[in-house]
Amino acid sequence: MPTRTPPVAAWTPAFVVDAVATAFERATELGFLRAMAEAARKHGVSAATIEEWVARARAVQTAPVPPGLLACHHCAKPMILVQLPESPQVYLCMPACGRLPVQAAAIGDAVAKTMLNRAPHLVPPGKTHAAAAYAPGAIRRIEVGATAGDLHITWRSDLPTARWAANVHRPAN
């Protein structure tokens, strides 16, 4: 059974993102297992470590913002959620363009506030604490600038109306 490489201080969020990006880029061509092995060789870590990082990057249950919405404003690449041991969750573009990581909680809070201000009818009653989770219904893309407050939001042109949302969020009889 493969073992995980012990954590190294040089594992920055950008290093993890580059390793995950290498695996994702080659996955369609080689399949995930071979792509992860190749990424492990390229970055000098064990395949089990790469596998764990890829699994964390693909796990979206705890993501502050639903996957696929965030992109880097500088390089236009998709952003993924990264969390190193004993560190807060951060978003980085994939592959990293050299930008600083942006705190995931701050982006989640900013998106939630935006949703509650612009499209409150899409957030069910009692779910305001998870307003960011409903962003795909109203937002097509969010480009993240230098900080979590520097968001460039592209809204859907077919934004559901309050009347539609009232029918969807109506309690069952």
Rank of each mutant, 00 (worst) to 15 (best):
P6H: 03
P7M: 06
G108W: 11
L151T: 07
D150K: 09
L116F: 07
A131R: 13
R58W: 07
W155S: 10
A9Y: 06
T49Q: 08
T128V: 06
R163V: 12
V168R: 03
G31I: 12
A47F: 00
P88S: 04
C97Y: 09
V102F: 09
Q103Y: 15
H121I: 04
V65M: 00
P6W: 01
A47C: 04
N167P: 10
R99H: 04
M94S: 11
H43K: 10
T22M: 14
A110V: 00
M1Y: 10
G145M: 12
H43V: 06
E38Q: 11
P160M: 01
F32I: 14
C72R: 05
V90D: 11
A96K: 03
R41N: 02
G137D: 01
A135R: 01
S87A: 13
R41K: 12
P13R: 04
V65Y: 08
P85A: 08
W11Q: 02
T28I: 04
A165R: 02
P85N: 09
A104Y: 15
A37Y: 01
I107W: 06
A130I: 06
M36E: 15
T114W: 11
H152V: 14
V90T: 14
L151A: 12
P13V: 12
E51C: 00
L151S: 09
C72D: 13
